[in-house]
């Protein structure tokens, strides 16, 4: 659609601008402020320059947390995206069953994050949880509070449980927009199931898939509550992801300077990667028009 040039449109955007400035810009400036200053308490601050940034960039603790975070996000994307597509392809197209599937699949998305954690904490416990009990009965030495591999597996399965539906729902929306005629043409050409997927379904899902990957990347990169409730970042530091580490540093130890520097680097990393996604996305939008 052609848009007309009109700078008075700024007035319509103004309320959003004021609100977001209050709830984002002011707090962000506080963070920037802390990141370049040091304090001995009593609200007396003095200039520290880039000291905190150097400390964070060279800190092994942060490197380890970043490593875990990248690994976690990579695993999450590698599981949820293919699984989501797979589920979407098998969803009923319309009628009662379609509605039922939609509602049941959306359920996990509307559960408060810490309740998701609680559900899996209860579900996985060896003494009272169904999962823990069954795995133990099958002869596995499963215990997510003491074994790091079990803790990782639990957190990953929990996230798959929590968010795969989002990818599936998005792909489902993309698939719904494919006209029936495409499939009929494919049938006449005797296209294989794979060819239909590769040349009809996948291109139609490209746009929504990108949104799905963007959302899943952002949210898994800032995951906090769910693993915190289940494992508390442990055993040891095995599931201490970036946000958990940050909250520990800022609110637990009250190391304002390093925490602020950490925040800024953390935000910039997410911003950079998301910007790449966003650029690709808008370019795709333009191509298809």
């Amino acid at each position: 659609m052609d848009k007309s040039q009109n700078n008075r449109a700024w007035f319509l955007v103004l309320p959003v601008l004021v609100l977001v400035a209050f709830s984002a810009v002011i707090p962000l400036m506080t963070v920037v402020n802390y990141s370049v200053q040091d304090t001995f308490g009593n609200n007396a601050f003095f200039w520290a320059g880039l000291e905190w940034f150097e400390e964070i960039i060279t800190s092994e603790r942060i490197h380890a947390a970043l490593g875990r975070q990248v690994l976690f996000t990579a695993i999450i994307l590698a599981i949820q995206v293919p699984l989501g597509i797979f589920v979407a392809l098998h969803m009923p197209k319309k009628g009662f069953w379609a509605s039922l599937c939609l509602i049941l699949m959306a359920m996990p998305l509307l559960i408060p994050f810490n309740v998701v954690g609680t559900i899996w904490q209860i579900f996985g416990r060896v003494d009272i949880g169904l999962l823990g009990r069954v795995l133990t009965a099958l002869g596995f030495d499963y215990n997510y509070t003491s074994d790091w591999l079990d803790a990782w597996a639990t957190v990953i399965v929990m996230d798959v449980w929590h968010w795969t539906s989002l990818v599936a729902l998005l792909c489902y929306a993309g698939l719904q927009s494919i006209p029936e005629a495409y499939y009929q043409a494919a049938k006449i050409d005797q296209a294989s199931r794979w060819a239909v997927f590769r040349h009809i379904e996948l291109p139609k899902m490209r746009g929504v898939l990108l949104i799905a990957v963007l959302l899943r990347f952002m949210d898994s990169f800032m995951i906090y509550t769910e693993p915190f409730v289940v494992t508390g970042g442990g055993p040891g530091n095995a599931t201490t992801f970036l946000s958990i580490d940050l909250v520990k540093m800022a609110i637990g130890q009250f190391d304002l300077g390093p925490a602020a520097a950490f925040s800024i680097i953390y935000f910039l990393v997410i911003l950079l990667i998301s910007w790449v996604f966003y650029t690709v996305m808008t370019n795709l939008d333009r191509e298809t028009k």
């Binding site: 848009k3 007309s4 009109n6 700078n7 449109a9 925040s263 935000f267 997410i270 911003l271 998301s274």
Partner: peptide, 25 residues
């Protein structure tokens, strides 16, 4: 509906707030 000065940047800037980790704030 409209193109206006800085609209694209503003739109992306809005989106960046969705990307901000709550832990930072």
């Amino acid at each position: 509906r409209y193109r206006f000065l800085g609209d694209k940047h503003l739109f992306f800037w809005l989106l960046t707030n969705r990307m901000a980790p709550p832990a930072v704030f």
